[in-house]
Design a protein around this nucleic acid. Sequence first.
DNA 1: AATGAATGAGCATTCATTCAT
DNA 2: CATGAATGAATGCTCATTCAT
Lengths: 202, 202, 202, 202
Amino acid sequence: MTPPRDRPTFTEAARRQQIIDAALQTIAEQGYTQASFAEIARSLGITKGLIAYHFDGRHDLITSAIQTLLSRQSAYVKERVAAHHDAVGRMQAYIAASFDYIAQHRAHVAALVDLWGSFTSPLEKVAFSQTAYEPCRAHLRAIMRAGLEQGVFAECDPTVMAAVIQAGIDGVMLQWVFDPTAVDLAAASHELQTMVMQRIRR
Amino acid sequence: MTPPRDRPTFTEAARRQQIIDAALQTIAEQGYTQASFAEIARSLGITKGLIAYHFDGRHDLITSAIQTLLSRQSAYVKERVAAHHDAVGRMQAYIAASFDYIAQHRAHVAALVDLWGSFTSPLEKVAFSQTAYEPCRAHLRAIMRAGLEQGVFAECDPTVMAAVIQAGIDGVMLQWVFDPTAVDLAAASHELQTMVMQRIRR
Amino acid sequence: MTPPRDRPTFTEAARRQQIIDAALQTIAEQGYTQASFAEIARSLGITKGLIAYHFDGRHDLITSAIQTLLSRQSAYVKERVAAHHDAVGRMQAYIAASFDYIAQHRAHVAALVDLWGSFTSPLEKVAFSQTAYEPCRAHLRAIMRAGLEQGVFAECDPTVMAAVIQAGIDGVMLQWVFDPTAVDLAAASHELQTMVMQRIRR
Amino acid sequence: MTPPRDRPTFTEAARRQQIIDAALQTIAEQGYTQASFAEIARSLGITKGLIAYHFDGRHDLITSAIQTLLSRQSAYVKERVAAHHDAVGRMQAYIAASFDYIAQHRAHVAALVDLWGSFTSPLEKVAFSQTAYEPCRAHLRAIMRAGLEQGVFAECDPTVMAAVIQAGIDGVMLQWVFDPTAVDLAAASHELQTMVMQRIRR
DNA sequence: AATGAATGAGCATTCATTCAT
DNA sequence: CATGAATGAATGCTCATTCAT
């Protein structure tokens, strides 16, 4: 059990992160169901008791892993988008950055696809949707709205556009996770940008 | 032990299908990891021994369930596409039919998303990709090529286009599985068609 | 998990009883906390999985064991008491039978003493009190009341008398469980009968 | 490791007592099995490592707790008994004091009942009997013998009487621990005194 | 004197699987 | 075909204990 501490120690934080990373790696390599405490511990050369010591059970570990996953990807994309100041540039940056992150973090996105199947109740699914998807769509919506207000984007529903663009990114990622030779990430990134731009540019 | 497969009896085939459907329902409702033989058996009022009798282990059941899933969706889409004889109509029909199937078979697609995380080795993932994705993309590629040959589609790479279109469909499905209120399926279907048409029409 | 069956099969009932008896024996010999599924299974030459198959978890096993314990003792005492038809005879029979049962079933009463400490919440304790103690006290109260009505017992509060008499029995049992050489069961039985009779006889 | 016991410091002794009291409280509230080092430590706001530092393992802690329990009760009863100088007064004082202590220390006696089930071997049980029960019975025997010698008690076996009287006290305590509404402690105290006096007074 | 990190054995429980009937 | 009994391996988790700091 994680000791209830006001300020987690340095060791504590480092261990937690180390275990989370090992968990993601193991999930990516062997699948969510095979990623047992024992397996993760083995990959780190520690005992499974230590995992139980640092996390409040499996749910806590998985949740923390998902958090890590999402915040890293989100931070990466946000930074790249922020480098641009026009709606067109930002939209292209969002798509390009998303694909770049995917290409550079195969294990992470593979783990993510596995974790999609880890929710057992509709409530957990909705919660994940709110935590993981909604921020992405909201980001895209904001870019869309800015473009519309500035008059550089053609009329369209930002909500639907956001969902469809994110869908394109995730869908390609999915195909690529299953078989990296089945789809050319760079080409897909380019094509999606083209498609979206042709649709929304005034 | 699975009985010899040379000539499956009628009863045998019916039982298998019954079990597969119950498995899909259970996976959709409770998640892949919760869908144990015992749980599936309970939902059917039979014993788990009987499931083991009709399937060569869990892998066989899951594989068969995925097959069922894919062939039903594929058959539905194929039929709808075949009703059209021009590339534009076929492309729109493919997208529309895919979304319609999704909307009408929530449990099935929910199960599918859960099953995405059920593969433990890269080989299984590649095999799934070949069985599940490749036929869809091939279908889309064929429609694309016909349109290009007929001169009604603008120049583009059919392989990449197929991947991106399928990605858009799957990605929206994913968001909708997690939270049906998060995305409007009909609007997304419409938007994806618009986007694709604007891109590929000459 | 126990399969939900309308009528438990013969094998099922026999196995359950066999496991319960082994559990009581193990508790008596090694203590409640040491009586793990593994230990009980080992003493029977079966696997612990089988115990889990026949009982709905540890709580179910322990509860069933206590039930067995109480009903056997109760049945024995009731039969001995019923052989008498006067209040004096019945009261003496109750005490004598209780001590005789204790003397002849050391393992059972040793297990019972251990199980006294197995309740973790006040609610469980109260429930045990209702199930285990109240029927004993009620039996004694009924004997007392009959004696009072027949005018053979001196005036006294049947409720308090019942509690104190049962207390004497249980308290001696406790001392004898800890060290069989520390107290002479037969002498204690005799003395308690004498004491009670001297108190309640008119 | 326990620090050398030759001259325990003041702090050391205080800590030990503090931990023992917390342990008793926790056992009384949550049961013997739930009273883990972690739980006891949590209730004190210290770490479980500190408990291990002050006690030579769990057995040492439990043993010390029992010692504390017994010596407190014993001291209380001894003092009350010593206030009387005749056998009759002392016998009544012993019973009355025992019940009074019980009534005023519910947590302690609840813990004691739980601890009855904490011995895993016959040897431990016998040792407990010698430490806990024998002194009580010896005290009662001494009172009995004095009464007999002084000619105020009727002829009877002091050993058996002692066992039965103590049994009555413990048995009522047991019922009261399980359900405080099930038995009236004061009435039981009174009744036991009456019963005993009627039996032993010449 | 006290902590936080780590261990390793043991726990109840789950589950796919086997098999005699 | 179908069942119920039984297995054995694996899982998450708990806990007393150890120890460097």
